[in-house]
Amino acid sequence: MLNIADTLHTWCRESRPFALATVVQVSGSAPLPVGTALAVNADGNAVGSVSGGCVEGAVYELCQHVLTSDEPPTRARFGYSDDDAFAVGLTCGGELDVLVQRIDPTDQPHLTAALDEVVSGRPAAVAQIIDGPEELLGRTLSVTGGDSTHDALTGGEDWERAVAAQARALLRAGRTGRVEVGGDAATCPEKLSVLVHTHASRPRMLIFGAVDFAGALSEVGRFLGYRVTVCDARPVFATPARFPHADDIVADWPHRYLAATDVDARTAVCVLTHDAKFDIPLLRLALSLPVGYVGAMGSRRTHTQRVELLREADVPEEHLARLHSPIGLDLGAHTPQETAISIAAEIVAHTHRGSGTPLTWSTGPIHHPLTARRDEGPSIQLVGHGGSPLSSKRFDLP
Rank of each mutant, 00 (worst) to 15 (best):
M1E: 04
L2G: 07
R16V: 14
V26P: 02
A30I: 00
L32W: 06
P33L: 06
V34P: 01
L38V: 01
V50C: 10
D70A: 15
F78T: 01
Y80K: 01
F86S: 05
C92A: 02
C92M: 03
Q101P: 05
D107H: 12
A125P: 02
A125C: 05
T140F: 11
S142R: 13
D147T: 14
T149P: 07
H150D: 13
H150Y: 15
D151K: 14
A152G: 15
G155F: 10
G156S: 15
D158C: 11
W159G: 04
W159I: 04
V163G: 10
A164P: 13
A164D: 12
L170Q: 12
L170R: 11
R175V: 14
G177E: 11
V181T: 09
V181Q: 07
G182M: 07
G182Y: 07
D184G: 07
D184V: 07
C188F: 13
C188V: 02
E190H: 05
K191Y: 03
L192A: 08
V194G: 09
L195F: 14
H197L: 09
R202I: 02
I207N: 00
A210Q: 01
S218R: 01
S218Q: 01
F223V: 09
L224M: 11
P240Q: 12
A241P: 00
F243V: 02
A246E: 05
A246I: 04
D247V: 05
W253V: 09
T261I: 05
A265W: 02
A265E: 14
V271D: 00
L285Q: 15
G292C: 03
Y293D: 03
V294T: 04
V294G: 03
G295N: 03
A296H: 05
R300H: 15
R301V: 11
H319Y: 06
L320G: 07
P326D: 09
I327F: 07
H334T: 12
T335P: 06
E338W: 12
I343M: 02
I343N: 02
A349P: 00
T351F: 01
P358T: 08
T360G: 00
P365F: 04
R374L: 11
E376D: 03
V383W: 03
G386V: 04
S392H: 13
R394W: 11
